[in-house]
Design a protein around this nucleic acid. Structure first.
Lengths: 189, 189
DNA sequence: GTGAAGAACTTTCCAATGGAAAGATAGATC
DNA sequence: GATCTATCTTTCCATTGGAAAGTTCTTCAC
């Protein structure tokens, strides 16, 4: 056996995401994953501590990537941000499956908290930009404003889940982006 | 040991729901559950086949109970139905955690399919009643073709998830029902 | 260069879990 | 009261996550 895989940490995360995407979180097992990567089954422990550590790192990666994706949409419609949210979830089911899952991850992990914060800022900025407000004022405590943001988040989050559950899908001849946009358009912020 | 527990099937479902509600689906294990019920760890297999069978039965129970709950709201606002949806999810996290999870259940199970159908009919009826349409005509179209219905479902489903994830919560001095209603009110069907 | 020192990985061991198989008991039916 | 069937137990096994200790590689001071 050759020591030093090279970038085992990243390899584990990628493999885990693929397997979760294919068979769900419940089916993920570190042993067969390590087998495929050609390392001992305890090798990932050095990088992640335990299985929960793997899922935590995967969730953090998901939050970061989603935050980036939404930030890129800036300048666009609020709907664009929503579409980006749902698209990310559908295209990265392995990541999305461990995000917003306090039971699967270690919420005290600083890396995770920072990643969650980054996504939160992206979402708030998207809503603020839509309203034409300076981002700095966006986090004022107006309950109506917050409920609008939460409503927008909810519909995107819910649609993502329903699509992943196989309950919702684009009509024939309709692109996924069009379908998502058409559905999210029913929100009134 | 005394044979014949009485109603082991129901006891297992209830215990499973409680445990999932407390620690999440991943933490559920049939062995300690059976231990608490005072039966051998293989006893539930007779009623459910395997672990997936337990989760499938739990999901079916969840769909049925949610369908009932929403049907009771008939005559009320569409928002009432939405509030009922979210309330059920928050009050029965053990059931909701296995609903809409194709990776956890056996979707070919007839009991599950029937239960899903019942919930679908309740949702369609709720939207139809809101629109003032006869229920009979409402079910002519597949719900997934009607973006308004899907949007309403999405926002309720998403809010339920966000609340369970600890991301969203009522403001101080606000009841849960008020909070849910206020958030869902942003939908335009 | 060389020799720690630490990082990355392996080997070995263990407890717990889900499940298979076969046997025991209780309730129902006649 | 004998038999039949549903319900539950006992025993056994493969797989999994994890603990502990050892091995190999890299880095870096000198």
């Amino acid at each position: 056996m050759s020591y030093h895989h090279g970038d085992l940490r990243q390899a584990v995360l990628q493999a885990a995401a693929e397997r979760i995407a294919a068979d769900g979180v419940a089916a993920l097992n570190l042993r067969s994953l390590a087998r495929d990567l050609g390392v001992a089954h305890t090798a990932p422990r050095h990088h992640f501590g335990d299985k929960r550590g793997v899922l935590t790192a995967l969730a953090a990666q998901g939050y970061r990537q989603m935050a980036e994706r939404i930030a890129v949409q800036r300048g666009g419609d609020l709907l664009d941000a929503g579409v980006a949210y749902v698209q990310f979830a559908v295209e990265h089911p392995g990541h999305f499956a461990v995000m917003f899952r306090p039971d699967l991850v270690d919420e005290s992990e600083p890396e995770l908290q920072e990643a969650v914060g980054a996504l939160g800022r992206s979402l708030i900025a998207a809503v603020a930009a839509f309203r034409g407000e300076p981002v700095a004022e966006a986090s004022s405590g107006d309950p109506r404003e917050q409920s609008g943001t939460l409503a927008a988040w909810s519909i995107a989050h819910g649609l993502a889940h329903l699509m992943l559950a196989g309950v919702a899908a684009p009509a024939e001849g309709e692109s996924r982006a069009e379908f998502i946009r058409r559905t999210l358009a029913h929100i009134a912020v």
